[in-house]
Amino acid sequence: MSKITMLVAVLGFVAAAGAAQAMTAAPIGPNPSIASDVRMGCGPGMQPNAFNRCVPNRRAPVMRRLVCPRGTHLAPSGRRCLPNRF
């Protein structure tokens, strides 16, 4: 009886292995063609502008909010403090 059980197990394994499809190996690491498309040949620290010229990467401007002392308020320009009028 164990020979029949062993034969059924082997045939089941062979049938399952034959039905399985192999998966292709994925490349390891970043794809170099994607990186060159993003930079478009500008080099590190550079990016293309609207006219496809290479310009340096810039940081976003930091918006500082001026805090005025008591008795003053912020001017409409946002650059200086004006005294309050009563």
Rank of each mutant, 00 (worst) to 15 (best):
M40H: 11
T5H: 11
G29S: 07
I4T: 13
V38E: 02
G41D: 05
C68Y: 03
F86G: 04
A60Q: 07
P48R: 10
F13L: 15
P44C: 00
I4R: 09
T5Y: 09
N57I: 07
M1P: 00
P27A: 13
R85M: 15
P27E: 08
R80Q: 07
G78Q: 04
I4N: 05
A75K: 06
T72M: 15
L11Y: 02
A50P: 00
P48S: 06
M23K: 14
A35C: 13
T5E: 06
R70G: 00
G71D: 05
M40N: 14
K3L: 10
V67T: 11
R58T: 14
P44L: 08
L82A: 01
I28G: 01
R65S: 09
P76L: 03
Q21S: 13
V38A: 07
A25R: 03
P69S: 08
F51A: 02
S36W: 06
Q21K: 15
L66G: 00
A26F: 08
V55T: 14
R59M: 07
M46A: 01
D37K: 14
R53M: 11
A20S: 12
L82G: 00
F13M: 14
Q21D: 12
N49W: 03
P27L: 10
L11T: 12
L7K: 00
A60E: 11
A9C: 08
G12I: 05
P61D: 06
R79H: 12
N49D: 15
R58N: 06
A25E: 07
D37S: 11
A9D: 01
K3G: 01
A50L: 10
P83R: 11
T72A: 10
P48A: 11
P69E: 09
T24R: 13
C42N: 09
C54H: 06
L7A: 08
G18W: 06
M63V: 12
I4K: 11
P27R: 11
A16G: 10
P76E: 06
I28S: 03
M23H: 07
R59A: 14
A9K: 05
M1V: 09
I4E: 04
P61G: 01
M46N: 06
N52P: 00
P69I: 04
A50M: 09
I28E: 11
C54A: 13
G71W: 04
S77A: 07
P76G: 04
